[in-house]
């Protein structure tokens, strides 16, 4: 019997070795491992053997069956893998054919720039606040050291509502609103829509957006040196670590000293190009130390506090960032424009 089993094993392994197809392996499985297999037939004679022999033969036949089954599995896997190894060729597709179009939404480029600005300032511990867009004359002008009949009001062409309110000409009005309700120290930014009564062209809009920033603390704790670092950190956050800034003295009624700030051109890295009009610098906004008259107008003790305020246009930043040459596109609602962002 032992011989018979070994003979079956030998024959089975030979045949398995020769099998080339899935079907052949299946036939061999029936022949050598199924209920009606040769091995099963042989084992029918077990009952005539002594218990000792029975045990020995039983173990042998089990072992043999395991070997045959394992060989069958191996062969089957081998044939399967062989078949799959051709699949690359068989199922080849044209990868240059375009991908399936999926409807994707687009946030407005101004929203995207806005959130980028917010993220940088939030990381520096700023609170983002908002306030009214339609202001009274006091908060838009007087509190900002621009009394009525002051020529500084000429710097901004103003819309007026028939009820005497002003669609704010700058986000600076938020400074006054915030300081009326909060005591220093604080650092805030405010982003929002402003209005100027200007004829529209590629670089001028009647509705546009600004960012306003304000830091106030005890006198001596906020200096021009700090202002420079805040502007610089912001610009690095927006245009990259190598960005440089410079301040040019200027005048805005609500700050003193006042300056404009420029960033090194992110396109040519200060070499001079079309975007920066060959100067290497891009004018970005205005800033300065809060004018003492502004503190007085909101009821702060002007000798006790010092502050730093800054402001810049969001459209302008977006135009520089994306290379947009016409400001009117932002409010045109044209999906061919919006889908690019």
């Amino acid at each position: 019997m032992k011989n018979k089993i070994n003979e079956i094993k030998k024959r089975a392994l030979e045949e398995i070795g020769k099998a080339k197809t899935f079907e052949a392996v299946e036939a061999l499985r029936v022949k050598y491992s199924g209920r009606k297999s040769e091995l099963t037939n042989v084992l029918r004679g077990l009952k005539d053997l002594s218990p000792k022999e029975r045990k020995e033969i039983g173990e042998l036949s089990n072992h043999t069956k395991q070997i045959i089954e394992s060989e069958l599995d191996k062969k089957e896997l081998k044939i399967k893998n062989e078949e799959l190894s051709h699949i690359d060729k068989k199922e080849k597709i044209d990868v240059t054919y375009p991908g399936k179009k999926t409807a994707k939404g687009h946030l407005h480029p101004l929203t995207q720039v806005r959130y980028a600005i917010e993220a940088i300032f939030k990381s520096m511990g700023f609170l983002v606040v908002e306030d009214r867009e339609v202001e009274d004359e006091f908060h838009n002008f007087d509190a900002m050291n621009m009394p009525r009949n002051h020529p500084a009001r000429d710097m901004q062409d103003t819309f007026w509502l028939k009820n005497g309110c002003v669609p704010r000409t700058h986000t600076s009005s938020v400074q006054a609103r915030f300081m009326e309700k909060n005591k220093p120290p604080f650092r805030i930014i405010s982003l929002g829509r402003v209005y100027r009564n200007e004829n529209t062209d590629a670089t001028h809009e009647s509705n546009f957006h600004q960012t306003e920033g304000l830091i106030v603390d005890k006198s001596g704790k906020v200096t021009v040196a700090n202002a420079k670092s805040i502007i610089s950190e912001f610009m690095k956050g927006l245009f990259g670590e190598s960005t440089k800034i410079r301040l040019r003295p200027s005048y805005f009624p609500f700050v003193e000293p006042g300056f404009e700030f420029d960033a090194s051109c992110p396109y040519c890295k200060g070499e001079g190009c079309r975007i920066c009009k060959k100067t290497g610098w891009i004018e970005l906004g205005g800033a300065g130390m809060v004018n003492q008259n502004v503190f007085t107008s909101v009821g702060f003790n002007e000798d006790k506090y010092e502050g730093f305020a800054f402001g810049f246009g969001i459209e302008r930043l977006a135009m520089i960032k994306y290379g947009i040459d016409d400001i009117r596109l932002f409010h045109a609602g044209d999906l061919r424009f919006l889908q690019q962002f």
Partner: peptide, 19 residues
Amino acid sequence: YERIREVFANMPMKSVIQD
């Protein structure tokens, strides 16, 4: 102003509850 160095403002580390 170019002679003024950039100096970080000395402000408290505080979490800010946003609007």
